[in-house]
Design a protein around this nucleic acid. Structure first.
Lengths: 204, 204
DNA sequence: ACCTGAACACCGTTCAAGT
DNA sequence: ACCTGAACACCGTTCAAGT
């Protein structure tokens, strides 16, 4: 029996759109991405197979909504991490760690966020905007570090892309188990990557 | 009518395993990853729906074989690029460019190589080995640069992971269209990433 | 050994219909 | 407006059978 106030129960399943998203997230986390079907989501939400079409144009729209939710929550985690740092450089490291931690805590969602099903953003304007916000967030952080004299000059947008690329690549290789044989922990790899990004590989 | 010598035609479709791989690659490139089904591959190869099961245990095995083929061809391209450089540093840049170019020339295959369907390498020992060879290749290149005094000390395996992560992340963000708004070409972004990897972001 | 046809349990999506 | 049931064209996989 739903406990929500009547005003938010526009039909007898409460907020069905949210219920479908919750069901999708549960299936994704517990049963894996290959089980994430519109029919399974409908079953878990307790409605007929065709009910989701009232809220999502097609399967891709549901996946996009899940991806967008992931970007949103990851952005929140990064924001919280940024506020915790005592110095700008510590803040950047905290943000990097928050990013990597989010991906490893919710690997299935992270994969969906960057997966092939939503890689073509045509018709997914909201998702494009939310994903772009992550880059904007990193760009603002880079800009702040430049103003503080902690990193050198250069187009902050390009530097931000390189920073994001490093984090994203590290996460993907790690999730794919492709860093398992280097004899270094996840934190050690983040550390090494941060060191290279700050000081470079060239001898000083 | 197949023109191969009789010795290689173990059955009337020639080398059916290879024919199925070719069909899969064609479908992947032309119709996209969502059309890559065992049945479609069989149809295109002109055999019954169940014939592929003589050569691939299941759909995942076919996808893994396609991914492995991709890793193999990408490794070849990197090897060729490495030999072309006049100096070690130019060679590294050439390898980076070859990597990024391969991914953009065969985006569907690249996505499959790092996609969720084969991310769990359990039971895919050959794929794990071929993927690991890419890391070994980068590690050897880093080691060579260290010996030549062109990059500083440090565990070459960890430095290689960071280098690969940067390339992989750049490729994925670019393929996802998430670098479209920074006003920089693909080459410019590779250039910027290479600069940061070599000299770092910190002011000198 | 290699391939086929029928069958089962799924799936996305559409359509007419119910309240 | 919101939801359902039936239907269509797919899919992965198994099984008995054919040469």
């Amino acid at each position: 029996v739903p406990k929500k106030p009547a005003a938010s129960r526009s039909y007898h399943h409460g907020d069905l759109r949210q219920a479908l998203l919750d069901a999708g997230l549960w299936i994704l986390r517990v049963e894996g991405p290959q089980s994430l079907s519109l029919r399974a989501v409908a079953r878990r939400a307790g409605v007929s197979q065709t009910a989701p079409y009232r809220h999502f144009a097609d399967r891709r729209a549901l996946v996009a909504a899940i991806a967008q939710d992931g970007f949103s929550r990851m952005g929140d985690a990064m924001q919280r991490a940024a506020q915790g740092g005592e110095t700008p450089r510590l803040a950047l490291k905290n943000v990097a760690r928050a990013y990597v931690d989010f991906a490893h805590e919710y690997p299935a969602e992270y994969r969906v966020m960057f997966g092939p099903e939503v890689s073509d953003k045509d018709g997914l304007d909201d998702l494009r905007a939310t994903g772009g916000a992550v880059l904007g967030f990193v760009t603002a952080a880079i800009d702040g570090l430049q103003r503080g004299g902690l990193i050198g000059p250069g187009d902050p947008a390009r530097i931000a892309v390189a920073t994001w690329a490093m984090l994203h690549g590290l996460v993907m290789l790690s999730l794919d188990g492709q860093t398992a044989n280097v004899g270094a922990s996840r934190d050690e790899l983040v550390e090494e990557a941060t060191r290279i990004m700050m000081f470079g590989m060239a001898p000083r």
